[in-house]
């Protein structure tokens, strides 16, 4: 099913706005700091230690 041009533009703009809003809301509630604290430690599950 092909999406019309105008509908596609609307979907793209809405998704971009939603993406930016979610990104900043995540930073606002402290997720970026949580990501950093996880990423700077050796991920034991990732390397297969458990």
């Amino acid at each position: 099913m092909k999406m019309s041009n105008s509908k596609k533009i609307v979907v793209q703009v809405v998704l971009l706005v939603v993406g930016v809003a979610m990104l900043f809301y995540g930073i606002y509630r402290g997720e970026a700091a949580a990501v950093l604290s996880k990423a700077i430690k050796l991920c034991l599950e990732c390397v297969g230690i458990g």
């Binding site: 971009l16 979610m22 990104l23 900043f24 995540g26 997720e31 970026a32």
Partner: peptide, 11 residues
């Protein structure tokens, strides 16, 4: 839920 990562990946 991760709004930060979901938003980043949608973008």
């Amino acid at each position: 839920f991760s709004y930060y990562i979901t938003g980043f990946l949608i973008l």
